[in-house]
Design a protein around this nucleic acid. Structure first.
Length: 798
RNA sequence: GCUUCUGUGGCGGAAUUGGUAGACGCGUUGGACUCAAAAUCCAAUGGUAGCAAUAUCGUGUCGGUUCGAGUCCGACCAGAAGCACCA
């Protein structure tokens, strides 16, 4: 009887579906819960790739094991279905984006089914579904009413080709993430969400999470907390003052000039008549530069003198005010005090324009600029101090006493621009009245359904296509005439809270039942690509934190444990994709030719989940061979209701190792242990049925189809999916005889046989008696002996 | 430039967290089976020297700590990712 993967896999797909095997009773609180979640895909026109399969299989393995361990497992899947590609496709073909999206979702679901993922499809969500975006709009409405979503006139990333603004993380090197079209800075009125208000909480929350270190670090950098001070400067001969932000207020005695961002409002008020021409032309020059040019690498600093002077508040000295584009209008106050002796950028600028440099920290013969700790000099009441923290503290209290400044914490985290001038997204449920006021729709008027349109194309002027739905836009609400907001929400709106909706996807009265949320949150395991390290993962943390404060989300953080699957590269070690289509692997082909079990097994065996790994066709063959080896073994007639002591230890070791490795997501070593076990069974003539059954269960999470078939072959009529997980006996799993390496002066010179936990004296005796060892130690003095039972013996001789 | 991660045979990768480096798989070689091939099963497989026992070198480089370092510390080199004039 041959292993026919197609037949077996189709048979079990159908059985699982017909019997609703993986449907979770969400109200069953009698068992402990486990929430295993994948980052849901965008249903694009191209199919799932190998990377999807890898991440999804990983969570599936854990979900399947947890079910067998007696957990009530929630393992849902859905679709992040609003967004640009569907809309681009609709424009190109004249179809409605919804039809395209629905078709793609069907393709994706068919594929996910082929892979054998144990999703509960009764919990499916789709962000473009009115039943779902009803609550996306409801959350937005609350954010608006709580003052967290506001309309702001601000510089945005405008992409003319896409006809929309983009968030910072959607812009890469001055080009749009999708399509690679040029992006320019432009002032526009935009809906924004106040992320900075949550900066500190988002930063602190990271500490409690079981997330990859690198991802936490990326979020910390993105939030960019810096502690410093505001310092107020008077402008000589003017009534105006300006404020700078600095992290080094302790160097105020060394501030020899100030720099304003070219866009700073004070510039045109204080520039002198003689410098006017120069200042204005510099400003113009800057405004024409794109963001990319302004931040170009290693660019030489430019700037011009305004003709005005500021008064250094600490010593009354008059210092020149310059403007330069190395000072950003969007960070801090858009103005800095320059301390060229102790700041690299200021030093470079001062050197170029021959501005005075006054050291205020002794630098022990080191070159300027000196940015480390040292003894303060030329600094009046700071002189003699040696500690930076102390200097900063002292200076801040002096500033505060004299009303010249104050302590200040600044964040790099910006507002989240929450509007797109596009069609295929959630409408923003806000009405603009004729009198200039705004109001959110009442709860009972949600969802605000996206109107049908004939023409979805974006306009180059920044007006949303929704403006073409004139009947939808103009309305009378609460007796007042007004117009509907026509921007739509960005792609990350729905994905910022979808994990809550899986728990109660059909609730029409509320976002989700509070009792259910309390039981099921947080997500116990979340797997997805590292490209979401800031965007999605930061936005959803913020929404969750907000909903937590409103008493809706039950936990401060949504995702307790996060893992990123690595990228699966082409066989040449290069990224699969457009550039080398000949190296791209379509999982469907592998499933057709080798089976989903082989694909899953191979991808889990390739290497650590988080690592990037090159594809190997012979590796796939190897995985297939292992399954065939198992298949032959089970059909060879050696499975008997008998004992076989030769297999006892290795069986218990295998159960232990596989269980632990699944728990920690080390699938490659779990599989390797199962191979070792099968190799051992091949040397035997009796394979006890108890062990055969245990082994099938261990393999089931990785290769669910073939193991269901073998389970049935062993005489079972019910699915293996909920059968109890095999247990192991620690005593039986321990190695009785341990071959110990014996070192002489740290070099392995022989080995001896010992018992587990044997006495040190007895081990040493064996080691000293060993022929090989004797050779090395005879005629020499034994200086020291190290004996660690079960690990090593080391004899030090002279 | 800053932050984080990675560096182990011909290849993918193991190594109980400081204790016999190279598990397991791929590949290669040899053997069994076969008229033959494939498949399968068995065995060998880090480099160098040697018929062999064995010796010696060996985890990016150089140093350090230690009885003992792939693992810890310092400096450097290479690659990847993220941030990028953030005051």
């Amino acid at each position: 009887m041959n292993y026919n993967h197609n037949e077996i896999e189709q048979k079990w797909q159908k059985r699982w579906e017909d019997n609703h095997v993986f449907q979770t009773d969400i109200w069953d609180f009698s068992k402990p819960k486990y929430y295993a979640l994948d980052m849901f895909p965008y249903p694009s026109g191209v199919a799932l790739h190998c990377g999807h399969v890898e991440g999804y299989t990983a969570t599936d393995v854990v979900a399947r094991m947890k079910r067998m361990q007696g957990y009530n497992v929630l393992h849902p899947m859905g679709f992040d279905s609003f967004g640009l590609p569907a809309e681009q496709y609709a424009i190109k073909t004249g179809n409605h984006p919804e039809g395209f999206t629905i078709k793609n979702i069907e393709t994706f679901k068919a594929q996910l089914r082929l892979v054998g993922l144990s999703y509960d499809w009764s919990k499916e969500v789709s962000t473009c579904d009115t039943k779902f975006y009803h609550w996306t709009q409801w959350i937005f409405k609350n954010l608006y009413q709580d003052g967290l979503a506001t309309l702001k006139d601000m510089p945005v990333n405008w992409c003319e080709e896409l006809g929309t603004v983009l968030a910072n993380d959607e812009v890469i090197d001055g080009k749009s993430e999708r399509g690679g079209f040029p992006v320019v800075r432009k002032n526009m009125k935009q809906w924004v969400i106040d992320m900075p208000r949550y900066a500190d909480k988002l930063l602190e929350g990271l500490d409690s999470l079981d997330w990859p270190n690198s991802t936490k670090e990326i979020q910390r950098n993105w939030i960019g907390k810096s502690v410093g001070a505001l310092v107020h400067f008077k402008v000589k001969d003017f009534s105006q003052t300006f404020t700078v932000f600095t992290t080094r207020p302790d160097t105020l005695f060394g501030a020899t000039y100030c720099v304003l961002a070219p866009e700073h409002e004070l510039v045109e008020q204080i520039m002198s008549e003689s410098q006017k021409q120069e200042v204005l032309s510099y400003k113009k020059e800057c405004s024409m530069k794109s963001e990319l040019e302004r931040t170009e690498l290693n660019k030489e600093k430019t700037g011009v003198f305004t003709g005005a002077y500021a008064i250094n508040p600490i010593n009354g000295s008059e210092i020149p005010i310059w403007i330069s584009d190395y000072v950003l209008a969007s960070y801090g106050t858009g103005a800095i005090m320059a301390v060229p002796a102790h700041d690299e950028r200021d030093y470079e600028f001062a050197t170029k324009f021959s501005l005075p440099i006054v050291p205020v920290i002794a630098s022990d013969n080191e070159e300027l600029p000196y940015t480390k700790d040292g003894t303060y000099i030329n600094s009046s009441f700071l002189n003699g101090l040696t500690n930076k923290e102390e200097g900063i503290k002292t200076m801040i209290s002096w500033l505060e006493e004299n009303n010249l400044g104050s302590k200040k914490v600044n964040y790099r985290l910006r507002d989240w621009i929450f509007a797109r001038q596009r069609y295929w997204g959630e409408p923003i449920p806000i009405i603009h009245y004729e009198d200039g006021s705004m109001e959110a729709l009442d709860d009972e008027d949600l969802p605000l359904v996206l109107p049908e349109l004939l023409d979805y194309s974006p306009s180059k002027t920044g007006l949303s296509p929704l403006n073409r739905a004139t009947d939808w836009v103009s309305l009378v609400y609460h007796g007042k005439k007004g117009t509907m907001e026509t921007s739509t929400m960005p792609g990350s709106a729905g994905s910022s809270w979808y994990y809550l909706r899986y728990i109660d996807p059909n609730n029409e009265k509320e976002l989700a039942n509070p009792e259910l949320l309390k039981h099921w949150m947080p997500v116990d395991l979340y797997v997805g690509g590292p490209e979401h390290a800031v965007g999605h993962l930061l936005y959803s943390r913020m929404w969750n934190r907000y909903l937590f404060e409103k008493g809706i989300a039950p936990t401060e953080e949504p995702f307790q444990k996060l893992v990123h699957q690595g990228m699966i590269l082409g066989a040449n070690g290069i990224k699969m994709g457009k550039r080398y289509p000949e190296y791209a692997i379509n999982p469907n082909d592998i499933i057709r030719d080798y089976g989903a079990d082989t694909l899953r097994l191979y991808e889990m065996f390739m290497g650590p989940l988080e690592a990037d790994k090159p594809w190997s066709n012979s590796g796939v063959e190897g995985a297939r061979k292992f399954l065939e080896r198992i298949w032959r073994l089970f059909h060879s007639g050696i499975i008997l209701e008998q004992e076989n002591k030769n297999l006892e230890q290795i069986y218990h070791q295998t159960v232990k190792k596989v269980t632990e490795d699944y728990e920690t997501l080390n699938f490659n070593t779990a599989i390797s242990q199962m191979m070792i076990f099968i190799n051992a069974v091949y040397k035997e003539s009796v394979f006890p049925k108890e062990y055969a059954e245990g082994f099938v269960k261990l393999l089931n999470p990785i290769a669910p189809f073939i193991t269901e078939e073998l389970w049935e072959f062993l005489g079972h009529t019910k699915t293996i999916a909920y059968d109890y997980w095999p247990s192991f006996d620690e005593e039986k799993a321990t190695q009785k005889e341990i071959i110990l390496g014996v070192q002489v002066n740290g070099k392995i010179r022989g080995e001896i046989s010992t018992f587990f936990d044997e006495e040190k004296e007895s081990i040493l005796e064996k080691a000293l008696k060993d022929e090989k060892i004797e050779k090395y130690i005879c005629e020499k003095e034994i200086v020291k002996t190290i004996v660690i039972p079960n690990k090593i013996v080391n004899i030090v001789v002279k």
